Simulated scan of single mutants.
Amino acid sequence: MEQELMRIGISLPDDLLKKFDSIIKQRGYSSRSEGIRDAIRNYITYFEWMYAVKGRRIAAITLIYDCMKCGLSSSLTEIQHEYSFLIRTSTLAHLEPGNCFEVIVLDGEGQDVRLMTEKLMSLKGVKYVKLNTALPPQNNNQVFR
């Protein structure tokens, strides 16, 4: 059964659209619409996976952001302070001017990990966020808080 197609309009920076068009061509999509549908399906799958993260988790949040964006560093720090009970360590690398790469290692309840990740994702100037989680080891000889 064919679903009705809805037409939408989006605005993108020129460099992002050029990269997207290049990927569309490499992957052999017949149109931008096909690529956008695929990207949206992947986004939904990732969103659903994040909401299924429950119980205690060991996690890493990977970020790339514009460290020159006014107020962004302060906002990132505020969120990290709000969730300091989860954070075990973090590391920051300065890439080319304006871009920072940060990895935050967490240990805590999946819902808290997800909430922190979503707050980071929503900040303007954050270019990339990826959450990875694992169940903590069950070996009682290993100590995790």
Rank of each mutant, 00 (worst) to 15 (best):
E2G: 09
E2N: 09
Q3E: 15
Q3C: 13
I8L: 13
I8R: 09
G9Y: 03
G9E: 06
I10H: 06
S11L: 06
S11I: 07
L12I: 05
D15I: 06
D15N: 13
D15V: 10
L16C: 12
L16K: 09
L16G: 10
L17R: 07
L17V: 08
K19E: 15
F20G: 02
D21T: 09
S22L: 11
S22Y: 12
I24T: 10
G28N: 05
G28V: 05
S30Q: 14
S33L: 03
S33Y: 02
E34Q: 09
E34R: 06
E34I: 07
G35W: 00
G35N: 01
I36S: 00
I36T: 01
D38P: 00
A39V: 07
A39W: 04
N42F: 09
N42T: 10
I44D: 07
I44T: 10
T45H: 10
T45L: 12
Y46I: 15
E48W: 03
E48L: 09
W49S: 09
W49Y: 13
M50H: 07
Y51I: 11
A52T: 14
A52Q: 13
V53L: 07
V53G: 02
R56P: 07
R57V: 06
A59F: 01
A59K: 00
I61L: 00
T62F: 11
L63F: 03
L63M: 04
L63T: 00
I64M: 02
Y65A: 03
D66P: 03
D66N: 06
D66E: 07
D66Y: 01
C67V: 11
K69V: 11
C70P: 15
L72D: 03
S74L: 14
T77Y: 04
E78N: 14
E78H: 12
I79Q: 00
I79D: 00
Q80G: 03
Q80N: 08
H81R: 08
H81E: 07
E82Q: 08
S84A: 09
I87Y: 00
R88I: 08
R88M: 08
T89N: 15
T89I: 10
T89K: 13
T89E: 13
S90H: 09
S90W: 03
T91Y: 04
P97K: 11
G98E: 03
N99Q: 15
N99E: 13
N99Y: 11
F101N: 04
F101C: 07
F101W: 08
V103M: 09
V105A: 05
L106C: 00
L106E: 00
D107L: 10
D107R: 06
G108Y: 01
G108C: 05
Q111S: 15
L115S: 14
M116C: 06
T117E: 02
K119V: 08
L120Q: 00
S122G: 12
L123T: 05
L123G: 01
K124I: 10
K124V: 14
V126E: 01
K127G: 11
K127R: 15
Y128H: 10
Y128M: 11
K130G: 10
K130S: 14
L131A: 04
L131M: 05
L131V: 09
N132T: 15
N132L: 12
N132K: 13
N132I: 09
T133P: 02
L135W: 11
L135K: 15
P136L: 02
N141Y: 10
N141P: 04
N141R: 12
Q142A: 13
Q142L: 14
F144T: 12
R145L: 15
R145G: 15
